[in-house]
Design a protein around this nucleic acid. Structure first.
Lengths: 216, 216, 216, 216
DNA sequence: CATGAATGAGTGTTCATTCAT
DNA sequence: CATGAATGAACACTCATTCAT
């Protein structure tokens, strides 16, 4: 605590640099994509010189991975933790998760990463593999856990896991792609309230899955 | 048929050139994206020289537009025509349309264009605008027409058009993006039967929209 | 023959370009080394733009290999041919070879390649391997053939091949390194007549090797 | 020994620093060349920070000069001293010198400096000039002194000094270049015993120079 | 004395488009 | 009509040296 008082200016900057660079990188990657983002721009936006960027991140790809770790992996982990600690019904859990997912990720700048990786993944196989391993796989795992839990407690009917996973993910992906395809106006993306859309979808999904759907 | 007898070989080739170039271009654009496709490759694949390509298409962007006209706009127009001539119920029409859309477009090579435009549209605003005008707007228009027709006949309940449009489009988009994101393994995309998935979604959607849903 | 009269200007240039680039490259590689030679300089010296260089040679390394093939490998092959066709005694052959080697290679600009590869080979393993295979190995092979021939005819005494090879090569290498180490003044290199030096060394060597050395 | 008792640890380190840096620098310069050796690596190998290196040596070039002074100039001076004090015949002196030169320098790590200066001298004229003045000139002077001494005593015939100097130096240089051209396999360099080779050459040379060569 | 954060100049390679032939 | 030679702008990454702490 006294440290923060004593820490000299240079030192303080040093500890902030990675964060500043990461933030600048997130902004630019999301805005322009990976390939189109020039490392010098990132540095400039963070207020340092080109060389300094490479002092903290050995390459543009590593910079990107760090951005993903900071902004996506972290969110996935938090989600997994909440899932593990959730006390309510599986139906509630699923609905909560989908909505929170949108609130904490889909609606944020960081969701541009998802668009980026889908758009450019084919041209950067290393990044795609990294994302698959660090984000897609854990997230899918988490989803499956919820579904299995619901099935175990008898809450959910027997269902096709793959299909369900798709239905959970599809609307989020749709909204994210729409949001970041600035030059395109995919129907509804601009005027509809995404949160409502997600909530509705979640509700519909849960009903479909539930054992005792009192639709009538 | 008499044409082939009368037309000298050179002449015939000349008239086939654009088609051959368009086919080569479609393959490469879908496989590698717009930016990553080299015009020389397209020419080579069509069996002509680089210069010849620019003889038929004044630029790479115009080539792309021609590919879109040939492979996407055409499909949309066919769809609109069928919609106009369709005799059955609006519910049938909607279900038919969604399934046919997948069969005639989503499941074909040409659907890569959709992934391409979403992925790279931001970097090529002209192409995005062109696609918006020639594809997205007409397709959305067509969808709305169906919904309005259903409402007019009393088949469909009053609903949110934007929302419905999204629900119609989202699964198709999801499947298309999954299919063309080779380095990524988005859940379900590999093992699930897309046609079943679409059919199910269409069914669900129509039930939700319908006036007399005999769910109870 | 009529072709040369009809060949249009552009075409003629095209056939000359590789040669012009190769010559410019040789000059610059010898003058400044491999790493320090900028590809743009080579292009400029040949009177073309940077891009044109890469039209003819896919990379700087390939350009270098082409320079070696044109200026060194060729010479080695000519030497091997002459060795194979030589009619005189092995002693004469050896002396002739050493002197000719100097005249046709050591004393020319091209010998800078030898200095270059020894100087920079460690930093460009691919180039070193190429040179080893295309130049050093064949040249060594040729030398051994001569020695074996002399031994077979009874002209030469039994000797250590490795040692002899070194004695043949060392003075050439010494002269070449001296000649191209412009900033250094290794003794004798500037004023002594290299040809005399080589001739003397060859004479001495042959005497040492010969069966009937009439030194007494 | 009392020094270690009285000198405080920090103090001792301070006095050892230059030596440790010099040793690290020698290793790296020899292994990777001058340009390719990063000053940070040198510092790291010596266990200090980048800044500290520049505390002791104002620049990379000065560091190199210090390495030369420590590892080459010193050896030349020792050689000159021994030459001055040598009591035997000039022939013995020359043979001894050549062999000792190999033993004390050529066969050691330090001989990499010779390869380095020949390889990179053209790109670093200051270093080349320094080496010329501090090493080549004194060494050449020493050699000439021996030859003149031999001539003065009537031991040696009248000969061409330049030529003789070359013959003395050439084999050493050849062996050194071979030894440090790791990617290249110049004939004989690997299997032949360098010391024998040098000894033989020295013997041959002395015989050639001597007044009364009892070859017959 | 010692540290290590910051700098910024320098270069091989690609590719859409043109135009002389 | 068709060719293919030529162009030139654009971009990631390295490292010796400095100087605030």
């Amino acid at each position: 605590m006294s440290e923060s008082l004593l820490t000299p200016k240079r030192e303080r900057r040093k500890q902030q640099r990675p964060g500043e660079l990461l933030e600048a990188a997130l902004d630019l990657f999301v805005e322009k994509g990976f390939a189109a983002t020039k490392s010098e721009e990132v540095a400039a936006k963070a207020g340092v010189s080109k060389g300094t960027l490479f002092l903290y991140f050995p390459s543009k790809e590593e910079l990107f991975k760090a951005v993903v770790r900071e902004n996506v992996v972290k969110t996935v982990k938090e989600g997994a933790l909440e899932v593990a600690n959730f006390k309510g019904s599986s139906a509630e859990l699923l609905k909560t998760l989908m909505l929170e997912w949108w609130r904490r990720y889909g609606s944020t700048k960081a969701s541009g990463i998802t668009k980026l990786i889908i758009s450019e993944g084919n041209h950067f196989p290393d990044l795609a593999a990294f994302y698959q391993e660090e984000v897609i796989d854990p997230a899918t795992r988490m989803l499956k856990d919820i579904l299995e839990r619901g099935r175990a407690t008898g809450e959910f009917l027997n269902f096709n896991t793959e299909h369900t996973t798709m239905v959970v993910i599809a609307p989020m992906l749709f909204l994210i792609m729409s949001k970041h395809a600035n030059s395109l106006c995919i129907s509804g993306s601009q005027e509809t309230n995404p949160e409502n859309f997600i909530a509705q979808h979640a509700e519909l999904l849960v009903r479909g899955l539930s054992n005792s759907n009192s639709l009538c």
